[in-house]
Design a protein around this nucleic acid. Structure first.
Lengths: 193, 193
DNA sequence: ACAATAATTTACCGATAGGTACAAGTTGTT
DNA sequence: AACAACTTGTACCTATCGGTAAATTATTGT
């Protein structure tokens, strides 16, 4: 066998990398930081990610995208039960972002020029999220135009809630804002359904 | 006379510093970057800001806070004409953030650990904005509880709109989101006024 | 005109950045 | 046990980081 151990170890380093990038940003996360976070020496890090920090961040984004695709996007796109899919989305997102104390790596990447190299992935992540949510709302009989508006508003609103909760160091504000967004979407479905 | 020229030149460097910090973040903005952005040599920069990058960022935050206090917070707190104060706020904010293409330095500071040193100022900025907006809504006869909710939602929503517009590289989404927030607040006033 | 003061340039500092090279150690397979 | 493939630690590289020191060049009030 050839790559089995390599793959599992590379994969198991990614969550730690993600956490380091989350906390320090792409520029702020030094190789020393990443080494400490993963418990891997610099040599090992470059063995798994020959492309350096950029490849590490790429892997992190891939990993995040995979998680969201599986946990969030797929249920929305499937839309078997729009109401509970959306309810689940808000629950999962609240847990994922630790009530706003955990930064969204993807969102924060878009904010400074260090993230230019990842612009396409950042764009794809948000575009897919919004599209999936809009589709789910439409499945709940919300008119397309309103569905698009609400979806955009919800995804944007979640990002804003993270920024605010971090700035105020107050997760209650995150919870309030997200709760309102949730009600707004579910109300729309129950109004039109 | 002693500090006259010093003060004016220091002050005139601040907008350029702000733009550099906006684009690259605190860690990402190197002294070389800041030097190029301001047209001042490293030595001159340290002459005006002996405390280095941290003092530069402090000055930038002070400057931003001053601008917002004057252009945004004061009219809201005064609340002579709530409707036009809020309408003006959205206009000014849209122009200030260039329809979401310009990052909010304060918000982005809160996102990574590099901003820990400025946590108090970041918190104060958002707290004052929300309080001022809530006060203005109350002056428009919106009940206190609803006013607080709407104010929080609006400030958070603007931050989210910036994140999303940057991520999608689409200022139209910023404009749509902010337009909806504006309507939401003005409607609340016209409903209760 | 002149001394005092402020601003800028230049050169420099140690520390650390991201990244590479490679030898030594593990590991699984036969 | 032997072998190749994979993994890891160490040492090292150059560039640049934030920051400093001192010399030089305007400005300034008197």
């Amino acid at each position: 066998m050839k790559a089995k151990r390599a793959l599992t170890d590379r994969a198991s380093a990614i969550p730690a990398l993600a956490e380091a990038f989350r906390e320090h940003g792409f520029e702020g996360a030094t190789l020393a930081t990443l080494s400490k976070a993963t418990g891997l020496g610099k040599g090992s890090l470059y063995n798994f990610f020959p492309g350096g920090k950029e490849e590490m961040m790429d892997a992190v984004l891939e990993n995040i995208d995979g998680w969201f695709a599986n946990a969030i996007f797929a249920p929305l796109e499937q839309a078997l039960d729009p109401v509970s899919a959306i309810a689940a989305m808000f629950d999962d997102v609240t847990a994922y972002f630790r009530s706003g104390q955990r930064v969204c790596v993807v969102g924060s990447l878009g904010l400074n020029s260090a993230g230019d190299a990842f612009a396409a992935k950042v764009k794809g992540y948000f575009a897919r999220w919004i599209a999936a949510l809009a589709h789910c709302l439409e499945a709940g009989r919300v008119p397309p135009a309103l569905a698009a508006t609400l979806a955009e508003e919800a995804v944007s609103g979640i990002q804003g809630a993270i920024v605010l909760a971090r700035a105020l160091d107050d997760e209650a504000s995150f919870l309030r804002i997200v709760q309102r967004l949730r009600s707004s979407l579910l109300d729309a479905i129950s109004r039109h359904g």
